[in-house]
């Protein structure tokens, strides 16, 4: 199916911007209290660039979204989410089938792991995105199962001890808080499901 890019960008931006306070609050517990503000700045820049982004073919458009996040977010999440979108733009065909989405996400997760020198289990966004890539690759994914998995994996970061990112400075004290990057990833996945399923 062709990607409803404008609806995706509008909804993703609106929801990330609306969640800025929640994400920043999560980050103030275990990080440096800027994740929500940084992501808000990034997606406001995406909205500002929207006409130029939508004028491009889908792959190039996603790469431009990624580059905008890289340049405007101002924290580590800029290169991490930016790289994710840039890789999706590179890997997704114009009319992706589910198998294409699975392959593209797997590639994007691998690049985010390299960029963050991290992996699943370190209390980061990868704890949501990694299992999601595996789930999509299984071929058994539905919108409902994807939503449920993302929520469950974000929640599962609460009892984890952080070993990457700023939260790792806290060691044991990082336990008991949801990782803000896992939460923002969950929000994005939910949004993509909602838009693709036409539930708006």
């Amino acid at each position: 199916m062709a990607l409803p890019l404008e609806a995706l960008l509008d909804t993703l931006s609106a929801r990330i911007i609306a969640a800025a306070e929640e994400l920043t609050a999560l980050d103030s517990a275990i990080g440096d209290a800027d994740h929500g503000l940084n992501m808000k700045r990034g997606f406001e820049a995406v909205l500002a660039e929207k006409p130029a982004i939508l004028a491009k073919p889908p792959g190039e458009a996603l790469k431009t979204v990624g580059m905008t996040l890289v340049m405007k977010v101002g924290g580590a999440s800029g290169p991490l989410y930016g790289t994710l979108f840039m890789t999706l733009g590179k890997e997704l065909p114009d009319d992706p089938a589910p198998a294409d989405a699975a392959r593209a996400l797997a590639a994007a997760v691998a690049v985010v792991k390299a960029r963050g020198k991290s992996d699943v289990g370190c209390k980061t966004m990868l704890d949501v995105l990694g299992p999601l890539a595996d789930h999509l690759a299984s071929g058994a994914a539905s919108f409902a199962s994807v939503r449920a998995l993302a929520a469950e994996r974000a929640q599962a970061t609460v009892p984890m001890k952080a070993t990457r990112g700023r939260a790792s400075f806290l060691g044991e004290r990082s336990i008991g808080h949801m990782d803000p990057g896992a939460r923002s990833s969950q929000l994005m996945i939910e949004t993509v499901c909602d838009v693709l399923e036409g539930r708006l």
Binding site: D32, D34, L37, N38, R41, V70, M71, K72, V73, G74, G75, G78, P79
Partner: peptide, 13 residues
């Protein structure tokens, strides 16, 4: 030093 808005953070640009 500073994010793109000048607050604490870093900027690729």
């Amino acid at each position: 030093g500073g994010n793109p808005d000048g607050g604490l953070g870093t900027s690729v640009e």
